[in-house]
Design a binder for these strands. Structure first.
Lengths: 203, 203
DNA sequence: GACAATACCAAGCAAGCGCTTGGTTTGTAA
DNA sequence: TTACAAACCAAGCGCTTGCTTGGTATTGTC
């Protein structure tokens, strides 16, 4: 199943907004602006201007500004969880599964959903506690994919360190690529970067 | 030279504010609040209340709210650069130097300056471009300490990967510890965590 | 065509923000 | 004691923000 088929299926199930529709275009622009200026410094006037409408009209689509932030987060988690599940299904060994996860996460962080992924990290505090709880539930599903694979690697003796610590280190290392990775820099492809990450873990 | 001697020397040189003085107390509280609620959501009224004064009085000490943010960042970079230089001076081999840097950075991120270090990462966008330039100059001195050691390790054959990439991965992995590391969690000390990081790099 | 639903416009509200201003209080030096 | 500087108070300014409200325009359905 290709990436666009996964996306189409999520759209059909109303889990993710169609990027071509009004709501989807707004979320794409919101992710970009929130990433660039920060959620708090992005006004509803900025958001509206980015999609070519007046600010009051946003409130027809979303109840509050915060609901926009939450939707950016929820939708990127859903999409990337589905992409990672697909990467797992395409792999045979635990080592290949981990490689697939690393590759998929690097793609999500440095590709189409890079802005939304960065918003998830940097704008967490602007979510209300109730929204944080909801987003964390989805996030936990995503994290479980990782921990299951790391624990399997530990059980087969391929990994000595604590899976929890390894995942946390990886989260930081991979998330940080958003601040520095550029394909043009020294010809380092995402595949090459994936190789370096795997090598750093002696895997 | 001990940590408190380093701090006293920086205070004497007016590079860092005395934590016991009014300005220093304000910067400590500011780092805490900015970390907790975000810079944009922390009002000057919040800051003033945290140190027990009225909000207008803040402007006796700092020209603008942004100057407070910048001071939090500048002062933590200066302090931690000095601590890392001390760690380098206490080490003999390049491997020990790297270990000293990892340990010192983990201490800065998870210890007294943890809040300010997190503010440096998460609140970067709230700084004006001019302030960013100034803070980056200090940051570059700090980063050069790392790159020099990693390049020495590469030159002696102990490290295969690109020092630039390794440093970036380490920055992410170590910075992320602020979100999850707790000494009580499974008895993992900072020394133990340092060991795990070094092991992950096969060093 | 008629009607309902959806999408958007334009104007402006209430609340809150960073900061100013004129003043008072405290600390220091001569 | 006096003079001055530093630190703080209290009140309020001008501006910005997220959002509401009454309306118009467009789209979809029968």
């Amino acid at each position: 199943m290709s990436q666009s088929q996964i996306l189409q299926s999520l759209i059909a199930e109303n889990l993710v907004s169609d990027p071509g529709g009004a709501r989807g275009r707004l979320l794409t622009e919101a992710a970009r602006l929130f990433r660039e200026k920060g959620y708090e410094r992005t006004t509803v006037r900025d958001l509206a201007a980015a999609v070519g409408i007046q600010s009051g009209s946003l409130f027809h689509h979303f109840r509050t500004k915060e609901e926009i932030l939450k939707a950016v987060m929820v939708e990127t988690i859903r999409l990337n969880t589905a992409l990672m599940q697909a990467a797992l299904e395409a792999a045979d060994t635990n080592r290949e599964k981990l490689r697939g996860l690393v590759r998929a996460e690097l793609e999500s962080i440095n590709g189409q959903t890079g802005e939304a992924m960065a918003v998830l990290v940097f704008e967490w505090r602007s979510l209300s506690a109730a929204s944080q709880v909801e987003v964390l539930e989805l996030r936990d599903i995503y994290e479980k994919l990782w921990l299951d694979v790391l624990e399997s690697l530990k059980n087969e003796g391929a990994l000595e360190a604590d899976p929890f610590v390894v995942r946390r280190m990886l989260t930081g290392a991979l998330s940080w690529t958003v601040t520095w990775y550029k394909p043009e820099r020294g010809g380092l492809t995402l595949g090459g970067l994936t190789d370096q990450v795997m090598a750093m873990m002696a895997l």
